[in-house]
Simulated assay, not measured.
Amino acid sequence: MGLLDRMKKRLTDRVTRRHLIGTAAAAVVAAAGIVRSVPDPPGPAAPVPAAPVPDPPVPGPAGASGGVPFDEMYRGRHLQGRPVPEPPGGPAGHDSAGWHVTVDGRRLGLMRRADGSYLSMVDHYESYATPLAATRAAVDELGPLQALSGLGH
């Protein structure tokens, strides 16, 4: 066997090994994807954690800014909120919802939805019955270390 034959054999062995390793890796990845897509067998459903009980909704029409002021500590944060009277010309602004709310002295923007519920600038995806519930949810979303910017948005 000549030098050229030995070099061809080594090159063929090397390519084959790489090809086998690559094919094996692709097979492992594909198998992992198939396993993840197979649904769990039917059985007793896992218990669903109970949702927190929301505060009762504030009575009044959707445009009313009435409600009970709050000043409390929640998860180490100081929450304050008070209704803001609407000016004679109409609502106080799109982000006030008729309330001035702060978390640790920094302003939290609230919006009131057409159905009378509230959402905060921190959590746009959930609606809450009261400004206090929306403020608590914002604190939950922020966690213990993150602070509000103090801006309305």
Results as ranks from 00 to 15, higher is better:
4 L>I: 01
29 V>G: 08
84 V>R: 04
26 A>Y: 02
40 D>P: 08
64 A>T: 15
109 G>M: 08
57 P>A: 09
5 D>Y: 06
24 A>Q: 09
123 D>Y: 02
126 E>N: 10
18 R>N: 05
117 S>I: 07
80 Q>P: 04
116 G>L: 00
95 D>N: 15
8 K>M: 08
107 R>M: 15
100 H>F: 12
120 S>V: 11
8 K>N: 07
37 S>V: 09
62 A>R: 09
71 D>C: 04
6 R>A: 13
54 P>C: 04
101 V>H: 00
138 A>W: 06
85 P>C: 01
64 A>N: 12
14 R>W: 09
57 P>M: 03
73 M>H: 06
30 A>M: 13
136 R>E: 03
10 R>L: 06
16 T>K: 14
7 M>F: 13
65 S>E: 07
66 G>W: 00
91 P>R: 09
70 F>W: 06
134 A>G: 02
75 R>C: 04
51 A>E: 07
135 T>W: 08
142 L>S: 05
89 G>I: 09
46 A>D: 13
85 P>G: 09
28 V>H: 08
40 D>M: 13
24 A>T: 11
50 A>K: 13
131 P>M: 10
13 D>E: 13
13 D>R: 12
39 P>V: 12
38 V>T: 10
22 G>S: 00
153 H>D: 09
53 V>L: 14
102 T>I: 11
143 G>N: 06
132 L>P: 00
23 T>F: 03
13 D>P: 00
130 T>G: 02
123 D>F: 11
116 G>C: 05
88 P>H: 02
134 A>N: 06
12 T>R: 12
127 S>G: 00
57 P>N: 05
130 T>H: 04
115 D>E: 10
89 G>L: 10
72 E>D: 05
13 D>A: 14
152 G>I: 15
99 W>S: 07
118 Y>L: 00
117 S>Y: 12
33 G>I: 12
5 D>I: 08
147 A>R: 15
9 K>A: 15
8 K>I: 11
97 A>T: 05
52 P>Y: 01
119 L>R: 15
128 Y>P: 01
137 A>Q: 00
74 Y>S: 11
24 A>M: 12
134 A>P: 02
18 R>S: 10
49 P>H: 02
124 H>P: 07
20 L>H: 04
135 T>I: 08
58 V>F: 03
76 G>S: 01
28 V>C: 15
131 P>T: 02
10 R>C: 00
57 P>F: 06
21 I>Y: 12
1 M>I: 07
151 L>V: 09
113 R>L: 13
77 R>L: 03
134 A>Q: 09
58 V>W: 08
73 M>R: 15
28 V>I: 09
49 P>M: 11
140 D>G: 10
91 P>Y: 05
149 S>N: 07
32 A>K: 05
139 V>D: 00
